[in-house]
């Protein structure tokens, strides 16, 4: 199996790593770089616990992404949303609306929300629910997660105007 030297810019910091061909982006983050905020949930791209953002806003599943194909890319994880101790409005909204229970899906859920609201700052409830597909939660029935997305949308609209 061949190895690949790659550079990933993760949460603004550059990381040079040598990865074997079969290394998944998820494992580079979790095992090689100890960034455990990105979770293994199913390994088949169904549950979204491993969601990261690529090039700022594109949400993908890192569990089905070969690290060597991501050379030179910018990656954002949930930890990267917090800036200088200030939470991202989406993170604040998830706390305020009690959208967090066991928390395992939450890093992915928060990143999905950031991605969704960047593309569509003022989504309808139906659009929110459709957009949340691909991120599974077994605790909340999605009720308070939907409310958190709505609240984040309002906060972000307010801060921009």
């Amino acid at each position: 199996m061949n190895n690949h030297d790659i550079t990933l810019k993760i949460n603004g910091e550059e990381h040079k790593v040598t990865v074997p061909a079969n290394r998944l982006l998820l494992d580079v983050l979790r095992e090689d770089l100890q960034m455990t905020e990105t979770k293994y949930g199913c390994g088949t791209g169904e549950c979204g616990a491993c969601t990261v953002l690529v090039e700022g806003n594109k949400n993908i599943c890192s569990c089905v992404t070969l690290a060597a194909t991501m050379d030179g890319r910018e990656i954002t994880t949930a930890a990267g949303l917090e800036k200088d101790g200030e939470l991202h409005p989406v993170q604040e909204a998830f706390i305020d609306e009690f959208a967090v229970q066991c928390g395992y899906c939450i890093p992915g859920m928060v990143l999905k929300t950031v991605s969704m609201l960047t593309e569509n700052p003022n989504p309808t409830e139906e659009e929110i629910r459709h957009g949340l597909e691909g991120n599974m939660c077994r605790c909340t029935g999605y009720t308070k997660i939907v409310k958190a997305v709505q609240k984040a949308s309002q906060i972000m609209a307010g801060s921009e105007s």
């Binding site: 979770k39 949930a78 949303l81 706390i95």
Partner: peptide, 23 residues
């Protein structure tokens, strides 16, 4: 009162540690 959940902040940033996160 709906007091904030103790564990929510760690969970929204992903800093909360589950067994799989331990090395």
């Amino acid at each position: 009162k709906s007091e904030r959940k103790l564990d929510a902040r760690g969970k929204v940033t992903g800093k909360t540690i589950y067994v799989d996160d331990l090395q």
